[in-house]
């Protein structure tokens, strides 16, 4: 096909590929924030102090119902009026991380809810403090089953990072746009971006599916294992 220029492809590929590191760095930073903040939200939501629960629920609903792009503009353009000036990268990862933390909180919640009540009662009767209860009893049982779902959100976040280009973060898409506008050829740069995204996200999605199947199998076999452990302990 004559319309596709290979020489131009090789010329812009290194520029776009370099920007992939920014995309990955943004994804991982935002993801860590989402995981940590999500857990905090999930735990606060179970608080006995009802007004706190309502505030957390209301805020999460609001954040989840409004576009991440607008939240990004909010963080980047509004916060400086209140003395918080963030670099585009930090503003971007903060907005994305907070947005996704509300989703992660829902997943944590499903994991925490699936821990049987007896575990809470047992921990209380063993005189565990609240922190010990969460750290040693509840979370170690709540988190492993939800790892695949958390993984899916990692991929979703990766695919959402191009919106950071709107606040001038030079990630993959922005790098391609700059390269394209210099020569008025967008075909090759944008196609490279698409292919890079596909090459990273598709295998990751397959990997997570595999992990899910494996975890399901393990939880089916858990009953036998538990019985065995009990036998050893006795």
């Amino acid at each position: 096909m004559s319309i596709w220029s290979w020489s131009y492809t090789f010329e812009v590929f290194p520029i776009i590929f370099d920007a992939l590191w920014i995309t990955l760095a943004a994804t991982i930073t935002a993801y860590v924030l989402a995981m940590v903040l999500g857990l905090v939200l999930a735990i606060l939501r179970r608080s006995a102090f009802k007004p706190l629960t309502w505030i957390v629920i209301g805020l999460s609903e609001f954040i989840r119902a409004t576009p991440p792009l607008v939240q990004l503009f909010f963080v980047f353009y509004v916060l400086p009026f209140y003395g918080i000036s963030l670099s585009p990268f930090v503003a971007g990862t903060l907005a994305l991380g907070v947005h996704y933390s509300t989703y992660c909180a829902e997943i944590y919640r499903s994991g925490i809810d699936s821990v049987p009540r007896g575990q809470w009662e047992a921990a209380t009767s063993l005189n565990f403090s609240s922190t010990q209860k969460w750290r040693k009893i509840i979370l170690p049982q709540a988190i492993p089953p939800i790892i695949p779902m958390l993984g899916n959100y990692l991929i979703s976040m990766f695919k959402d990072t191009p919106i950071l280009s709107a606040i001038t973060v030079v990630e993959t898409l922005q790098a391609a746009k700059i390269a394209g506008s210099a020569s008025f050829r967008y075909l090759e740069p944008f196609t490279i971006v698409g292919v890079l995204f596909l090459l990273l996200s598709y295998p990751s999605a397959l990997l997570i599916k595999k992990l899910e199947v494996k975890l399901n199998r393990r939880s089916l076999g858990k009953k036998d294992k538990k019985l065995k452990e009990k036998g050893v302990a006795a």
């Binding site: 695919k159 191009p162 944008f190 196609t191 698409g194 995204f197 999605a205």
Partner: peptide, 23 residues
Amino acid sequence: IEIFRGTSLLVQLFWIYFVLPFF
């Protein structure tokens, strides 16, 4: 399905708006 789920919405949007005119 895999192409459109595997790439990002914004990338698709740019591709359709900026690249298709080439064709």
